[in-house]
Design a protein around this nucleic acid. Structure first.
Lengths: 217, 217, 217, 217
DNA sequence: GATGAATGAGGATTCATTCAT
DNA sequence: GATGAATGAATCCTCATTCAT
């Protein structure tokens, strides 16, 4: 479908230059479409960004909920959750950067709706930590900061991981799961997880040749 | 000095809306200066961004080097380094966001020069990890990923910490030092550090009422 | 026929927003037709305007000639002419506004042809006045200005008459005939007219629910 | 002042082609100003139209009030009112056309405010007619229609009068005053008016070489 | 120092129109 | 008949920047 081509091109440019610095004509050029034709597919430029972010956040949220549903044990849940988040981020680094950087480009009301989805996703994390703490499985001094630190660590993957490089995604997932484990006082969390990690999905909007290229910003 | 006012206003707007989405007139309005007058103080819009980023990165680098110089012991060094980075980030969240997000807005050659500074700073981290590993003090399976994960975790502070909130900066520093310690296999790193943390400096370009406000993106 | 639907929709929009401010898609939307389909029925946007104006002006001219043909007496002729013009204007206010306002939207040559029709119609008025003056029936100091004043007064009906209101068209016709009579020095012209007024025809292009609504402009 | 030049050019083009069909660049070209510079003087295109219409309508209203204030006698008042309206219309035909045709181009709220001014002006007419009727001086069968007919007749002057032609404005005023008089049952109203007509003022926005040129529409 | 005026380039978006299906 | 896709040209407007004052 053409719409997907447009979205992919948009993600590529938005992630590289930023939403505001990307021209609608530039996007069109990448898909060999006149700028006027884009409006046939996407509505406004902001609509385009909105559709991309919504799609990505919804998939992230769903992946998070499925990850947690794989076990009742908070430790397992944390492992799966980190695995899912890191997996998705590593497989979709460009889209992830757009999610992380361009919320501010949305109009107030659209931003609010988008934040609802993000908050709903973060709620999943919050509950896992609450259980883990009550459980005694998580040994942390500050639950909130620890959670935020882990999430930021996971988000950071989009800034340095190159999916076309040598390191397989699974290795990154293992590593960050272990690091997360240590952060809550558990060593070698990866090896203790019950069940396999869900394979991370590639978004339909993620550009094909996404090479993160450490392209700044 | 007026230049600092302009820079502060610029950081405030760049961090909130992004460089490309911020108009030169908008900056002028915040400091009651005609847009044409800005050019007396700052040169071009890119010059303004360049000066801000350079200043901030140089201070960060210096703080990093001083942190490491406080001890010969890699564990101490890591603690001081994390403390410095987190401290600076927490005290200058808006400037930190600009550093993290707007490298891409620079022209190629300027970006290259800026990356040199950033690389030079990251080299400090790399060496600490190299020593820690050789030393046996750091128990990690993958140094590079561990280092990146820790740095991203520290950078993330700019996304959620509110310097006007209740939590003192020092508490954040302690927490993240402990978390970093655990990530390399050492518990309670904070209590083991030799010497006091250097008090984090506020950049001259950091807006006064910087409340991070978790304002998106 | 569909063509008439399109023309009616066009008159509705042209009279409300003006030709230049009306989009071809807007017209299509009103008749549930894709904008591309309009071209099967109407040709270009200007063709559409042209067909509307030509049709209306031709009907006006014919009505004018028939009105004058009803008597040899200049006073009767004037009465019938005013009656016809006012009647048509009151029954087709939207189309009348289009005629009055949108000549300028036509290309030079099309405008010239349209003006020929209008001039031909005005020639009817001119001759009635010439006869009335020669006759001695019209007592005027400036024949041209009087004629123009009467015509403008009649045209003005399109600006304020609401065909869905209480006042019947016939009352308007009576009133303006009397006023016209007074303007040439004859009182109660309406009661002196020989023969009945021709009933004013509704144009095929006049929108059905034409409520003039005094909607500005 | 440059602003006046811009307004004059705008009136010239708006009256000739219509607001919607006039480009901002076209206006700029006429005053040798870059289109971007126009915004320095005028704000948006709609602001430009708004300022023109407001200025013209306010002057018209003031002239109307002054005309009526010249006498207590309704007949005199009507004469002065018609004289003022016709005078202003004849001296400012282009601006008058803009007032008559382009209200629809304004946004809803701006249009509402503009209509307030116009209504306030028409209220002057309404009161004169009310007094004239109560007085017995006006012999009419329907005041409202008579009033509307006279106003439309006066407005019509903008459609045919050429200020650069042979006929002086005063002659037009005389003629239309007499015609208006006849419409309310009074012959030779002009010769009965007490006091001189106020000389009609030329608007600052009326183009200098305003030759009505009967340019369509 | 400071600013109003000025501008070329470019921003997103809409336009009337065509054409293959 | 009817339409979705496509486009070049044009829309209004904003941009960063310069310069005479």
């Amino acid at each position: 479908m053409k719409l997907h081509d447009v979205q992919r091109a948009a993600v590529e440019l938005f992630s590289a230059r930023g939403f505001a610095a990307t021209g609608i004509r530039e996007i069109g050029r990448q898909v060999n479409l006149n700028s006027a034709t884009l409006y046939h597919y996407t509505g406004s430029k902001e609509d385009l960004l909105d559709s991309i972010m919504r799609l990505a956040l919804l998939e992230l949220e769903q992946a998070g909920r499925e990850a947690v549903a794989r076990s009742q044990n908070p430790l397992d849940q944390l492992g799966h959750l980190v695995g899912a988040h890191v997996g998705i981020t590593a497989v979709n680094p460009l889209t992830s950067r757009v999610i992380d950087h361009e919320l501010r480009a949305l109009t107030l009301d659209r931003r609010a709706k988008m934040l609802e989805i993000r908050d709903s996703y973060e709620e999943v994390w919050t509950q896992v930590f609450a259980h883990g703490l009550a459980n005694g499985a998580f040994q942390v001094t500050n639950i909130k900061i620890t959670r935020l630190a882990i999430i930021e660590m996971c988000n950071g993957v989009a800034n340095w991981y190159n999916p076309n490089g040598e390191l397989p995604v699974l290795d990154i997932q293992k590593m960050l799961i272990d690091l997360s484990g240590r952060m809550i006082g558990v060593d070698c969390l990866w090896s203790k997880i019950d069940g396999e990690l869900a394979p991370p999905e590639r978004f339909s909007v993620e550009p094909i040749s996404s090479s993160s290229e450490d392209s700044g910003g």
